[in-house]
Structure formats: structure tokens, C-alpha cells
């Protein structure tokens, strides 16, 4: 059965790299210096991009587009996607998005997706700055699409839909889903293919209009000659969103308090490695019924 080309949107987010908060990223008081953290392509969104590219590999003529919401610098996520094989990308950016929680974010993304149109949405399971795993399912709900979360592999694609293996807490499940559908991809799925040299050459100067305006050199002519270099920007007006449903006013959750996790040193008892000291420790633990 022949599958018609699919329009695939990858949801990707630029995040601070919270995985390796090393000594240099810690302030003297033991709290995190966020400015010292590198902005990266959210790791599970790279797993998502790989799944999207695999769909494109098996269904010729399909199109993979990245959609990212964030400030101007998040255009970097779109460029990275283009280097790895995506066909295009959109930066959803507007000051009115600031302060959006997952509900407001998914509203904005769903409005943008409605404008762009698609058969399959692929997102990472969760972003490492919030770890909520909420935006994917909430986008699906707003669009009325079914969702398949914790995806590890797309095993078959036919005209009716896709057969997908998803991870469960203690095993896995295989499901058959029709189109359109939203998938969220787990980190145990294959990693993303590397950048393709040809694409890096081709898209190295890909810019949003805003980036162009502040660029030191005038790229206008190059952009007229090579329209594929233009990264589309969309704002509130472009997606026809209700501003009340965005930003702080559209976000039911509020942060009441943030506490930095500071580990206060306890009075640890230092034990030597001599046999005698270890024996004394063991005897102490037996006597106070911690062990034995």
C-alpha cells in the first residue's frame, strides 16, 4: 500500500544544559549560576528529530519542519535541524508568550500548527529545564489528535497509520495509530544522526528576519537569491491567538516560591581505611540495629 508523502512537524526547544551543572556553574553560596549554562537543543527533541527523519526516509517526498517557541536566539535550534536534514523551520516568537506555562505554551504551539498543517507531530518526551512532559500531550489535546507518548521506535508505516513501539514503566507496548497523530519520543530511542556537511554549507547563513536586521553585514542580496535561507518567524498575530490565553494571563500555574537546593554539610564522621576503624564502624552499626 502506497503512503502519500507526510507533512511532519518536529517540536524542539532550546534549553539551558542542566545535566552537568559542574563546579564552575555553582555560585559560592551553592546555588546555580544559570548564565553559566550553555543553551542547547533539548536532548529528547533530537531523538524526536531522528524519528521524523526516519519517517521521511521511508516515505519519499515527506517534509520535515522544525517548530520552536522561544526568544530570537532560539533560531539556532532551527539551524541545527536544517544541518541534520530538516527541510525548513519556524521560530514562534513574541513578547506576549513570555511567562507561559505548559498550558499557554501548548495553546500557542497548537495555533501555529493549525496554520502550518501536518500529518505527524513529533516532540521529545520532555525538556530538561522543566522535565514536565506536558506540552506534547497538551498540544495533541488542543488539536484533537491522538497521542503516543514514550515512543522508542516507529516499526511500520502504511496508508492507514503507523505501528509504534512505546516504553512502559516495566516493559513495552505496540500500538497502531491513525494519522494525524502526535508522538513524544523517549531518550531510549535512537540518537539523532549527525550534521550533514552539505547542509551545513547550504544553511550556514540561514537567518530570521530579526537576525538579518541586526547582522553586521548586508545579506539582503544573498537572501533574494536563496530564499531557503529565510527562517520564518511567527508571532501572536500570525497564528491568530487570543492574547488572554498566552503568557502569564493564560497560565493557571504560578510559581509561589523557588528555593535553590543548597546542600548544607552535615557533621560527617570521618573513618579511616584501617581494618580496626572499619571493624569499629561495623560493630557500632550492629549495636545500634542499623544492620544485623
Amino acid at each position: 500500500m502506497l503512503v502519500k508523502p507526510l507533512k511532519i512537524i518536529v517540536l524542539a526547544k532550546q534549553v539551558p544544559d542542566t545535566r552537568n551543572v559542574g563546579k564552575d556553574a555553582m555560585k559560592a553560596d551553592g546555588t546555580v549560576n544559570r548564565a553559566a549554562l550553555e543553551a542547547i537543543f533539548n536532548p529528547e527533541d533530537l531523538n524526536a528529530l531522528e524519528q521524523a527523519l526516519r519517517i521521511k526516509d521511508s516515505v519519499p517526498g515527506s517534509n520535515v519542519m522544525l517548530l520552536t517557541m522561544g526568544p530570537g536566539r532560539a533560531a539556532e535550534v532551527v539551524r541545527e535541524g536544517l544541518y541534520r536534514g530538516a527541510d525548513g523551520g519556524v521560530l514562534l516568537t513574541d513578547r506576549k508568550f513570555a511567562g507561559s506555562d505548559t498550558l499557554a505554551t501548548s495553546y500557542a504551539l497548537s495555533k501555529a500548527i493549525s496554520k502550518l498543517g501536518c500529518d505527524v507531530i513529533v516532540a521529545g518526551r520532555q525538556a530538561i529545564d522543566g522535565d514536565t512532559a506536558q506540552v506534547g500531550p497538551q498540544v495533541a489535546e488542543k488539536l484533537g489528535y491522538p497521542q503516543v507518548t514514550y515512543v522508542e521506535e516507529i516499526e511500520k508505516i502504511n496508508a492507514d497509520g503507523m505501528e509504534i513501539r512505546r516504553r512502559l514503566d516495566n516493559g513495552f507496548e505496540r500500538v497502531m495509530t491513525p494519522f494525524p497523530v502526535l508522538l513524544t519520543v523517549h531518550s531510549s530511542a535512537p540518537g539523532c544522526r549527525p550534521r550533514i556537511a552539505k547542509n551545513v554549507m547550504k544553511y550556514k547563513y540561514a537567518r530570521t528576519l530579526t537576525e538579518l536586521q541586526v547582522a553586521a553585514e548586508d545579506y539582503t542580496r544573498m537572501f533574494n537569491d536563496r530564499p531557503y535561507l529565510k527562517i520564518q518567524e511567527m508571532g501572536v498575530d500570525d497564528i491568530g491567538a487570543d492574547t488572554e490565553a498566552l503568557g502569564l494571563s493564560g497560565s493557571p500555574t504560578k510559581v509561589k516560591k523557588i528555593e535553590n537546593v543548597v546542600f548544607k554539610a552535615k557533621e560527617a564522621k570521618v573513618i579511616g581505611v584501617e581494618d580496626k576503624e572499619i571493624e569499629e564502624l561495623i560493630v557500632e552499626l550492629i549495636e545500634n540495629h542499623t544492620i544485623g
Binding site: 544559570r34 529545564d129 522535565d131 510559581v255 509561589k256 516560591k257 523557588i258 528555593e259 535553590n260 537546593v261
Partner: peptide, 14 residues
């Protein structure tokens, strides 16, 4: 916990 476990946030839905 949020931000990779480096902060603890208290969230409310007023």
C-alpha cells in the same frame, strides 16, 4: 524539583 534538580519550586493554581 526543577532545573535538573538544582532548585525546588512551589507551584500554586490560584
Amino acid at each position: 524539583p526543577a532545573f535538573g534538580g538544582n532548585i525546588v519550586a512551589t507551584i500554586i493554581n490560584p
